[in-house]
Simulated assay, not measured.
Amino acid sequence: MGEFIVEALLSAVFAGATVAVGRDARRVHGVRRRGIRTTGIVIDIRETTDGDGDAQLYPQVRYTLPDGRKVTGEGGAHAVRSPLSEGDGVELLYRPEDPERIILIAYDRHMNIWVYGGLSLLLGAMALLCALSAVVSLSQSA
Score class of each variant (00 low, 15 high):
residue 29 H to W: 03
residue 11 S to A: 15
residue 117 G to S: 04
residue 32 R to Y: 07
residue 72 T to I: 10
residue 58 Y to D: 07
residue 55 A to L: 05
residue 73 G to H: 05
residue 5 I to W: 09
residue 97 E to L: 15
residue 33 R to G: 07
residue 108 D to Q: 07
residue 111 M to T: 05
residue 114 W to S: 14
residue 44 D to I: 09
residue 2 G to I: 10
residue 76 G to Y: 09
residue 122 L to I: 14
residue 108 D to W: 03
residue 64 T to S: 12
residue 129 L to E: 09
residue 67 D to S: 05
residue 36 I to A: 15
residue 136 V to D: 04
residue 132 L to F: 09
residue 142 A to F: 10
residue 102 I to P: 03
residue 7 E to R: 00
residue 17 A to S: 14
residue 92 L to K: 01
residue 100 E to G: 13
residue 44 D to Y: 08
residue 58 Y to A: 09
residue 132 L to Q: 05
residue 125 A to W: 02
residue 83 P to D: 05
residue 96 P to R: 15
residue 31 V to Y: 00
residue 100 E to L: 04
residue 23 R to A: 09
residue 81 R to H: 14
residue 84 L to K: 00
residue 19 V to K: 03
residue 43 I to P: 02
residue 35 G to P: 02
residue 64 T to C: 12
residue 50 D to E: 02
residue 141 S to K: 08
residue 54 D to I: 05
residue 83 P to T: 08
residue 78 H to V: 04
residue 111 M to P: 03
residue 100 E to F: 09
residue 105 I to M: 02
residue 126 M to H: 07
residue 26 R to H: 12
residue 89 G to C: 11
residue 108 D to S: 06
residue 132 L to P: 02
residue 109 R to I: 10
residue 88 D to K: 02
residue 71 V to I: 15
residue 56 Q to M: 12
residue 128 L to E: 04
residue 73 G to L: 01
residue 100 E to H: 13
residue 15 A to D: 01
residue 9 L to S: 08
residue 10 L to E: 02
residue 93 L to W: 07
residue 10 L to N: 03
residue 46 R to P: 06
residue 57 L to G: 05
residue 82 S to I: 11
residue 57 L to K: 14
residue 140 Q to H: 13
residue 6 V to Q: 06
residue 117 G to P: 02
residue 24 D to I: 10
residue 121 L to P: 01
residue 118 G to A: 12
residue 74 E to K: 04
residue 60 Q to T: 06
residue 97 E to S: 15
residue 35 G to Q: 06
residue 28 V to I: 15
residue 14 F to D: 00
residue 39 T to C: 08
residue 74 E to R: 14
residue 66 P to A: 05
residue 4 F to G: 04
residue 75 G to Y: 00
residue 76 G to M: 06
residue 47 E to A: 14
residue 66 P to L: 07
residue 45 I to G: 02
residue 131 A to T: 06
residue 141 S to Q: 14
residue 66 P to K: 05
residue 49 T to K: 14
residue 57 L to D: 01
residue 2 G to M: 12
residue 8 A to L: 11
residue 50 D to G: 08
residue 88 D to G: 05
residue 13 V to W: 00
residue 16 G to Q: 02
residue 21 V to G: 03
residue 63 Y to L: 04
residue 45 I to C: 08
residue 139 S to L: 11
residue 108 D to F: 05
residue 6 V to R: 05
residue 95 R to W: 11
residue 29 H to G: 09
residue 97 E to C: 11
